[in-house]
């Protein structure tokens, strides 16, 4: 039982648009997520990295049941998550929760923090007034906020505090899995560290599993056990955080790492100008990264590479015909 993954996503796909108009003309369709297969083990943090438009947020919304995949299966703790989300989102929300990117926009401006935090306690757990009060003070303590903040309105909080309230709301129903969608991107660096530390502490304290989505490589590296790199709706590389960041196999991961600025790093390696993402309405036939890839050959333009173990190392897999070898 403990060996079974907590969450497994099998060949999930999400298409936006599509279908036909009233007059029978086909509507353009965008594949936001394609052929994504991931397992998340109990107690780990899976980092998902990628640039804007790569489909990472769509993936996150599918995991919490806000969007249904067009194809593929998502299994949570042995149950079919997609069917459950369609039938009874509440049951799923008791176990899978979400932390939003924009902390202030995710709080209703006309509700007090108490009302916001009580909602999951009432609707998901059905607690009575006394139990709610006890749980509220527990939650505020967990995210390190003073209890008197409960009766204030969201606009009175700084970004970091608002994000901690967002985390407290996700924690309220005592979930097993929390999906964090760019939880620190909107925050200042000093506040970012506070929030990351709180998340770290909560994970141990409540035995949580995280799916941590971010475009910031260094943040993902500092929190994740395993990392999945997404590009244009597909996973291009997945493996233990340490080895993916030390020995990136996929040229895209390589490029990402070289582009990341870091204190003390003088020159960044940058590509030449033509680095557009492929047109999502007209995707290339082969590897989506081909046009930007220094290692690309004809085969890349003809076939879509599959995730495969590189150099016999099964833990780290890359979807590339010409991966970087072990150095």
């Amino acid at each position: 039982m403990t060996d079974a993954p907590l969450l497994s996503i099998e060949q999930a796909e999400k298409v936006f648009g599509g279908g036909r108009t009233l007059f029978g003309r086909p509507r353009p369709a965008v594949h936001a997520v394609q052929d994504v297969t991931i397992e998340v083990r109990r107690g780990e943090t899976l980092g998902v990295v990628g640039e804007s438009g790569c489909g990472k947020s769509t993936l996150a919304r599918m995991i919490v049941g806000l969007d249904a995949p067009t194809a593929g299966r998502i299994v949570f703790d042995g149950r079919d998550l997609v069917a459950e989300a369609g039938k009874d989102l509440r049951r799923l929300s008791r176990e899978v929760q979400y932390v939003f990117q924009d902390p202030v926009a995710s709080l209703n401006p006309r509700k007090t923090i108490r009302t916001i935090l009580e909602a999951p306690l009432i609707h998901l757990l059905g607690l009575n007034k006394q139990a709610r009060a006890a749980r509220l003070s527990e939650l505020m303590d967990a995210v390190n906020l003073a209890p008197e903040f409960l009766d204030r309105y969201p606009h009175e909080f700084s970004g970091g505090q608002a994000q901690r309230i967002g985390i407290a709301r996700a924690l309220a129903a005592d979930p097993k899995l929390i999906v964090l969608d760019e939880p620190v991107s909107a925050l200042d660096v000093s506040v970012q560290a506070q929030v990351l530390n709180i998340l770290d502490g909560l994970k141990d304290r409540f035995g949580l599993t995280y799916v941590f989505i971010s475009h910031d490589l260094s943040v993902v590296e500092s929190v994740s056990d395993r990392v999945a790199v997404m590009y244009f709706g597909r996973i291009v590389e997945i493996g233990p955080a340490r080895s993916v960041f030390r020995r990136p196999r996929h040229p895209y991961t390589h490029l990402l790492l070289q582009s990341a600025p870091a204190p003390g790093r003088k020159a960044l390696v940058s590509e030449d100008a033509n680095t557009e993402l492929p047109d999502p309405y007209n995707p290339p036939p082969g590897c989506a990264f081909h046009a930007r890839c220094p290692r690309g050959t004809d085969v890349c333009n003809a076939k879509i590479p599959q995730l495969e173990a590189v150099a016999g190392d099964d833990s780290q897999r890359a979807a590339c015909f010409h991966p970087h070898e072990r150095r």
Binding site: R61, L66, L89, N108
Partner: peptide
């Protein structure tokens, strides 16, 4: 389409 509506759905409303 705002995030707080999604958040309310996940709060079980």
């Amino acid at each position: 389409r705002r995030e707080f509506v999604d958040a309310a759905r996940l709060s079980g409303k």
